[in-house]
Design a protein around this nucleic acid. Structure first.
Length: 682
DNA sequence: GCCGGACTCGCCCTCTGCTGGCAGGTT
DNA sequence: AAACCTGCCAGCAGAGGGCGAGTCCGGC
């Protein structure tokens, strides 16, 4: 066998079963580990030599023996049960150790000692009790107990039957009892012999059963050479075929062995387990599901799989109606649903889970580990499903569709909320605990509370008074109390209004201020809009007023509202009289006035457009005070406000902002600003 | 060879919370 | 009309629960 393979196996040792029951508890685990470890001085070639000399080079084989009823013939036999031990790879100092204290059932202690570098031997210890199993750790590639064929340890005073688990290879090793009996004197002799052996580059195991040294069982452990370890292939790299060959080699050696996988750490005392394990290193899956053509290693796996096809669920929960294919699923289900047993506990918080994988996933929330990296962006997830969900943001996939409106969603939860709030009755609402607001979603309520009810360290000042608040909601509620106030009061008269711009214009009626001067005739006006109207009326040759004519009689009107009102009565005589009743002016004069009025309205409309485009100055200029302030004005005007402002003004009582005699007539006749706006739109 | 238990991976789900676009109302 | 406000809504991610299914191995 190649040295590299040996090195792989050098990591494998036997473990002492029920180690905690051993009497020498002072021997720490590390010390025990050191029992069979030693720097390996052997070379691969030397190993080869050792192998050819009869020592199996590939594995440690340990005997597992169980007590059986004593017979008279076997009355002096003891059973030693050996189990696999895995040692650390650190070098083991073997010079001064009483390595393993091994007790047998009924009290005979067998001490495994290292008598020199690379050497173990056994001696009988004082009678103890309780320990049923013993273990001997041997570095496997040098020698195996199985190679001794028969391995027994005599306990002089005990009568214990030995039997192997499978092949019942219990054989008397009465010859070996001498080793145990002869005590120090023998030990010393043995040590001397072993000292000689350890001069050899390769330590080996001798079992003297049946020869002149049959009174000794000397277990020689191999040296562990670091260089060899470096040459070790990893378990995953190991050659399965070599493992197989190892197995086959073992088969030829004896019926009772410990089988050690050359590919991984696996060891087993059972050939069947070993064989089964070795199949895990191959792709051999001979058991075919005829329903889906999937293959499995074992019949059991296949049967469980077929049950998933047939729906066979033999394991039924006693506390609910759930049933499962395997018992493990049932156990897990009961933990989740009924017992709430959570064996996997987080060391950093109180979290506990039913499954180890859940704890592993949870721990990532502490460590921040995000092992699942998105290949298209910087996002990384803590579990595979989140990454998969995230990938929809790149693919645009929306796998969830509302069955009612067929809207598609990226996440099922989003669709669920959609259906609940769009297509369901009795939709739950969330009432703000601090105000009367009711919000459809809890998360939005949280936003609401954060925006409106969160404490603000900065003072929130009322825009209308000196009040100060630290909560936005309280500020807003307070400011609403100012809403219907005519907060702007004239110092010179009883006039009051809601808007400062109105007051500014009003004040000029007291001061007589007329800051807007016509460049053509030096006439002054209180507002720029009035100036503009004047200019077009008297200085713009292109000004042509719009005339609205009655479709029945052809009579012209400067305003659509007047024409409309006339048209409804036209022909009945009522309209005619009404129209004639108002016509003191000559026909020519009326046409002139109408033309000017229409021009003024166009200008006003232009002023609105400017205001709409963000020219607040123009909009302000276009605003006209209440007609009562300009009783004698004969100039046409218009509402220089946005829709909202006009509405506001109307609400406020500014019923019309066109201070002309004709407009006055309109106002008297009930023509509102809105009607005027409609007319101007046309 | 079979069974049961432990372990693992994967999938799907729910609940939760934050974010930003949008629409309608207000200023 | 524009700016602003605010609820509505979909998108998206974090955390965790529950289950299906496969794998492996010890024990019988």
């Amino acid at each position: 066998m190649a040295a590299t393979e040996i090195s792989v196996l050098s990591e494998q040792f036997t473990k002492i079963k029920e180690l905690e029951l051993m009497p020498e508890k002072g021997l720490k685990e590390e010390e025990k580990d050191e029992v069979c470890r030693e720097k390996d001085h052997q070379s691969p070639s030397e190993l080869e030599a050792a192998c050819t000399s009869g020592a199996p080079q590939d594995s440690v084989l340990e005997e597992e023996v169980e007590p059986v009823p004593a017979t008279s013939e076997e009355s002096e036999k003891h059973i030693l049960t050996l189990q696999t031990v895995h040692f650390t790879s650190e070098a083991v100092e073997l010079q001064d150790m009483s390595l393993l204290s091994i007790q047998q059932q009924d009290g005979v202690q067998v001490v495994v000692q290292q008598a020199g570098p690379g050497l173990l031997w056994l001696e009988e210890g004082p009678r103890q009790s309780l320990q049923q199993y013993v273990a001997i750790s041997i570095q496997q590639e040098l020698y195996s107990l199985q190679e001794m064929e028969m391995l027994q340890f005599h306990a002089v005073e005990e009568n214990v039957m030995v039997a192997s688990e499978d092949s019942k290879l219990a054989v008397s090793l009465a010859e070996s009892a001498g080793l145990i009996k002869e005590g120090q004197e023998k030990n010393q002799l043995l040590t001397e012999r072993l000292a000689e052996r350890t001069k050899e580059p390769l330590s080996f195991v001798e079992t003297m059963s049946g020869d002149e040294r049959s009174d000794e069982i000397v277990l020689t452990i191999s040296n562990l050479n670091g260089e060899e370890q470096e040459d070790q292939p990893t378990a995953g790299q190991a050659d399965v075929e070599k493992a197989k060959s190892t197995k086959n080699q073992r088969k030829t050696k004896g019926a009772k062995r410990t089988f050690h996988c050359d590919v991984c750490m696996f060891t087993s005392s059972r050939m069947s387990s070993f064989n089964r394990h070795m199949k895990t290193h191959t792709n051999e899956k001979p058991h075919l599901c005829h329903l889906c053509l999937k293959t499995f290693r074992t019949v059991t796996l296949l049967r469980n799989h077929v049950n998933t096809h047939t729906g066979t669920r033999p394991y039924k929960c006693n506390d609910c109606n759930m049933a499962f294919v395997t018992s493990g699923e049932l156990v897990r289900h009961r933990r989740y649903k009924h017992t709430h047993e959570k064996p996997f506990k987080c060391s950093m918080c109180k979290y506990a889970s039913v499954e180890a994988s859940k704890l592993k996933r949870h721990v990532r929330s502490h460590t921040g580990e995000r092992p699942f990296q998105c290949c298209q962006c910087s996002y990384a997830s803590r579990d595979t499903y989140k990454l998969k969900r995230h990938m929809r943001t790149h693919s645009g996939e929306k796998p969830y569709e509302c069955h009612i409106c067929h809207t598609r969603f990226t996440q099922s939860g989003t669709m669920k909320i959609h259906i609940l709030q769009k297509h369901s009755e009795n939709v739950p609402k969330y009432q703000c605990p601090h105000c009367a607001t009711i919000i459809a979603r809890k998360s939005d309520l949280r936003v609401h509370m954060r925006n409106l009810h969160a404490y603000s360290a900065a003072e929130l000042k009322c825009r209308y008074c000196s009040a100060v608040f630290h909560e936005r909601y309280a500020l807003i509620q307070h400011q609403k109390t100012h809403k219907n106030e005519k907060r702007f009061k004239c110092e010179h008269c009883s006039y009051a209004c809601k808007q400062e711009r109105h007051m500014t214009a009003h004040i000029r009626t007291h001061t007589g201020e007329k800051p807007f001067t016509c460049l053509s005739c030096n006439k002054c006006f209180r507002q720029k809009q009035l100036l503009n109207v004047h200019f077009r009326k008297y200085h713009d040759a292109n000004f042509i007023p719009t005339v609205y004519r009655c479709c029945k009689c052809g009579k012209g009107f400067s305003r659509w509202s007047n024409m409309h009102r006339h048209s409804e009565k036209c022909g009945s005589g009522e309209a005619k009289s009404a129209a004639s009743g108002k016509g003191r002016r000559t026909r020519k004069r009326k046409q002139t006035i109408l033309r000017e009025a229409m021009k003024g309205q166009k200008e006003a409309a232009k002023g609105w457009k400017e205001a709409a485009n963000g020219d607040e100055a123009a909009a302000e200029e276009a605003s006209i005070p209440k007609r009562e302030q300009f009783p004698g004005e004969m100039l046409p005007g218009a509402c220089g406000e946005t829709t909202a402002r006009v509405k506001e003004d109307v609400d406020e009582g500014v019923t019309c902002e066109i201070p002309t005699a004709r407009v006055k007539e309109d106002v008297d006749e009930g023509v509102t600003c809105e009607m005027l706006l409609n007319m101007m739109d046309k």
